[in-house]
């Protein structure tokens, strides 16, 4: 099955949160349903980071904030040669970190 990142939709006001919250930021309600977040969106900002925590085996990574279709925002890694603010991107859920004990999965974005 294709992996997805889950958003948390308030059952009262329908606001979608990512990451999850105990109380809704918009209306204060405490019940949510999960839904797979869309994978395409627009790049809001980005950086290329050259000083990584010791458990990364690469020397640098791209990072960015993406506004997904529907408006939910997410931070993820970028595999894009020359990123630009506002460009269309599409994401995939991949392993983004291994700290020696666990594999962590998250969004990696590519040029759409």
């Amino acid at each position: 099955m294709e992996k997805s990142i889950l958003g948390y939709k308030c059952t009262k006001c329908a606001q979608v949160h990512y990451p999850n919250r105990t109380l809704c930021r918009k209306c204060g309600h405490n019940e949510f349903t999960t839904l797979p977040l869309p994978k395409s969106g627009k790049l809001l900002t980005f950086t290329h980071l050259y000083t990584l925590p010791a458990d990364f085996e690469v020397t640098s990574i791209g990072l960015g904030i993406v506004e997904l279709d529907g408006g939910t925002r997410i931070t993820g890694q970028l595999e894009i040669e020359k990123p630009e603010i506002g460009m269309k991107v599409r994401g995939d859920v991949k392993m983004v970190r291994n700290d020696g004990y666990n594999n962590y999965y998250g969004m990696v974005f590519y040029r759409a």
């Binding site: 900002t45 980005f46 980071l49 925590p53 990574i61 997410i74 931070t75 890694q77 970190r97």
Partner: peptide, 18 residues
């Protein structure tokens, strides 16, 4: 939502600065 990706304070500052 941030740490697992390798997000550090300098990287947040980089995205903010841009």
């Amino acid at each position: 939502a941030e740490y697992i990706y390798g997000v550090t304070l300098p990287s947040l500052a980089g995205m903010f600065t841009r």
